[in-house]
Each structure stands twice: as structure tokens, then as C-alpha cells.
Amino acid sequence: MSSGFAHVNGLKIYYEVHGEGGERPLVLLHGGAHTIELSFGRVLPALAEHRQVVAIELQGHGRTADTDREMSIEAFADDVLGVLDHLGIERADILGFSLGGLTALQFGLRHPRRTGRLVLLSANYRPDGVHEEIRANDPGSTRMPTKADFAEMRDAYVEVAPDPGHFETFLGRLSVLVNKTWQGWSDEELSGLGSPALIMIGDQDFTKPGHAVRMQELISGSQLAVLPDTKHVQIVNRPDFVLPMVEKFLDWSRVS
């Protein structure tokens, strides 16, 4: 594994490069308030066995310091492009979890010539695509992250962040982005996505199953998987389900 920082759009974006080979590199984009390790620690080694994997930490996450730049999904997607330029990667498949899934979708829509296949874990394309108790931030909902989940996010951040004391401020800025600023995409915009996608949610996820079905209908060449007995924060910790489907989907791209 090698790692470094790419100077992109006024930020120092942290990235790691694992493995080698494969038709195209695979970019990993973590969930909101996660680090690379927290989102992908259980799946990254297997994904990097036979191909190059580039894992990126977005603005304010992990080792990538926050700035006063407004957080937006568009800016995140452009930052990913900057890292690919820095590494000399012309085209990549992208796997994104939650916030990373939104960023992956935006990247595919904004930079289609640089996008191979997309794997979208626990993502939605409109704010109303998640269950109402999630939009209401209902602490009584069994779908919500637990106190232990939030403590794990905080601990992962504090361990590697340039400013460990910035977590609460960063979390507030991220909440504004996800719950107020981000407006999603229209059906017409989503149907214009030129990259096939594997859409994967848990049966107890934030995303409504009907919304995920609609995503599959709109994205040409897409597939949908619903993981049993799986909450939002658990989906990246189910390598028994996730890895075989992701590997098959990405291998298929070599012969399709």
C-alpha cells in the first residue's frame, strides 16, 4: 500500500493505493463521517487482491483536513477527479457507500468519460428516497445509527484527523449538506447516467426499497441487490454478501 496527498481545489486530499492489475482501477468512497478504514476495512483487502484500488478521504473526513469551503456533492466529485488526474488515471470504476455513493453518482453524471462502472451501496438519488424517520432524525428508529456507531465514527476521526477537536463542527457541516443543501437529481438526470450500476441496500437501510427499485429502472444496465437482516451502517461489514456480487459485477465489465 502507498499513500499520499493530492493538492486539489484548495484541499490536500488523502488517498491510498492498494494492489495492482485489473482492467480499470477501483475507487472507494467512504460514508459520511467515516474514514477509509471504518467504511472499507473488511472488504478492501479482498478487493485489492486482483486489481488496483484507490481509496480517497473526502473533505473534512479522516486525514483530509476541512476548510471553510462549502461542502457539496458536486465539489466532492470534482475532488475525486482531481485525485485521478494526480495519479494519472484516465478511467475508473467507483464504489461508494452512503455519502460516497452520492459522490459516485455525481461523478458519473458530471464526468462520464472518466467513469467505468458504479457500485452504489446504501445510496439514494433524492432526499425523499430515505425513510421518514431518517429524514426526521428520529432517535427511536431502529434504522438510525446507535450511540456505539457514533462513538466509533468519533474514535476513527480522532485517531487520524489533522484537527481531532474539529469533529463536532465537521459533523454539523456535514449534516447541513445531507439534510438541507443536497437536492438530489431528477428522474431525467438519473436516466442519463451512462454507466451501469450495481445498487445495493440493506432490508433495514435508510433507503426505501421502492426508491432503490426506481433507481434500477432509471439507470440502464443496472442491477439491484437487497441484503437480508442488514442495517445502513452494517452493509459495508457484510463481505459474505457484498464481495461476491461486487466482484462478479466488475468482472462482467471486462466481457460486456
Rank of each mutant, 00 (worst) to 15 (best):
M215Y: 05
W252Y: 11
D79Y: 11
A104W: 03
P239S: 04
S2R: 12
Q52P: 12
V213Q: 15
L224S: 14
L243K: 10
A46V: 12
K180P: 01
L250D: 02
L224Q: 14
N179Q: 12
R254E: 15
E20F: 01
A225E: 09
G202W: 01
G210Y: 00
A46W: 09
R254N: 15
P162E: 04
R51W: 15
I89N: 08
A123G: 02
D203M: 10
R113Q: 08
M153R: 11
V130R: 06
L84Y: 00
I73D: 00
A156P: 08
E90M: 11
L193G: 04
P139M: 04
G116I: 13
S2Q: 14
T169Y: 10
E49P: 06
T67V: 02
F5Y: 09
E37Y: 12
G108F: 03
I199H: 07
L109P: 02
D149I: 05
Q106M: 03
F76Q: 11
E168I: 13
G22L: 11
L26I: 11
P45Y: 15
G221K: 14
H30P: 05
S3K: 08
G21W: 09
H34L: 07
V130I: 13
S195N: 12
R214K: 15
H61I: 00
H30R: 07
P45A: 15
N9G: 11
S195A: 15
Q59V: 04
L190R: 12
E189F: 06
L250E: 01
H111S: 01
S222Q: 04
Y14P: 04
L95Y: 11
I13A: 14
V176H: 14
A212P: 01
K231I: 00
D240V: 12
L81N: 02
V53M: 05
K147C: 02
F167N: 03
G4F: 05
M144V: 06
L11K: 06
M153T: 06
T169W: 06
L81R: 10
E247H: 08
L224F: 15
